[in-house]
């Protein structure tokens, strides 16, 4: 397992957002976490990335994450592509990508990978990132995360707010990364797409686990279909 949590908790003051989750991501696995708004999906990733305080056990590549700063986690290859893209709007596309390699100190390998995946970004590398379309900004956010040379790539709502054709492109990209054997942990509201993509998935409600299983199996599950897919 590249990532394993046990009784993982994230709280904001007295409000518990993640209430003791035990999840795992394998060495060569794509895992999805789905659930309604407020289920604790974003808090889970924020806790794993070290953006918010978390308690309980979390082991990444065999070592505990406890006490590690977010910068230290990025350095070890635990990389988050955050919700809402969070690119640097006034910097150029290239500067955004270079910043992705901030903790790596080398730009070359990441840049090659990003250019191959997103030729569009390569074309626009001198453009100010804030002027990119929503879909392009999402590409940039994923590209920036790849520049950190992730050994576990976490993505928070990568398809949020995108046009359907861009949603397809995002999941095609994830599939391409999956084929490059990068372990992926993706949080999504688009349950149908996420379950179809993932090897395994967890379903959260109110900060707790309600179901887990192979993505295709959950996709076929009647209770899941009615609760999360609206079918």
């Amino acid at each position: 397992m590249v990532l394993e949590t046990s009784d993982f908790r994230v709280s904001y003051g007295r409000i518990a957002a993640v209430k003791g989750l035990s999840i795992a991501v394998g060495e060569d696995e794509a895992v999805a976490v789905i659930g309604a708004n407020g289920a604790g999906k974003t808090s889970l990733l924020a806790g794993l990335a070290g953006l918010v305080d978390a308690s309980g056990g979390a082991t990444y590549k065999g070592a505990s994450l406890a006490g590690l700063s977010s910068a230290e986690r990025v350095k070890r290859g635990l990389v988050l592509c955050p919700e809402g893209r969070r690119i640097f709007p006034e910097l150029s596309v290239e500067e955004n990508l270079r910043l992705g390699a901030f903790r790596r100190g080398r730009v070359g390998p990441g840049l090659e990978r990003v250019n191959a995946l997103f030729p569009r970004l390569a074309e626009r590398r001198r453009q100010t990132a804030g002027y990119l379309s929503g879909g392009e900004q999402q590409m940039l956010a994923i590209g920036r995360a790849l520049m950190s040379e992730p050994e576990l790539l976490m993505l928070d709502e990568p398809s949020l707010g995108l046009a359907p054709v861009m949603v397809d492109l995002v999941f095609e990209t994830l599939a391409a990364l999956r084929a490059q054997h990068i372990p992926i942990l993706v949080v999504e509201q688009n349950a149908a797409k996420a379950l179809a993509f993932a090897d395994r998935a967890y379903i959260l409600a109110n900060g707790s686990l309600v179901k887990e299983g192979p993505g295709r199996e959950l996709l076929a599950d009647d209770s899941v279909r009615s609760a999360y897919l609206g079918i």
Binding site: S70, L80, P82
Partner: peptide, 9 residues
């Protein structure tokens, strides 16, 4: 947030 996820302290 963007700065933190790329590992800027």
């Amino acid at each position: 947030v963007g700065a933190r996820v790329v590992g800027i302290s």
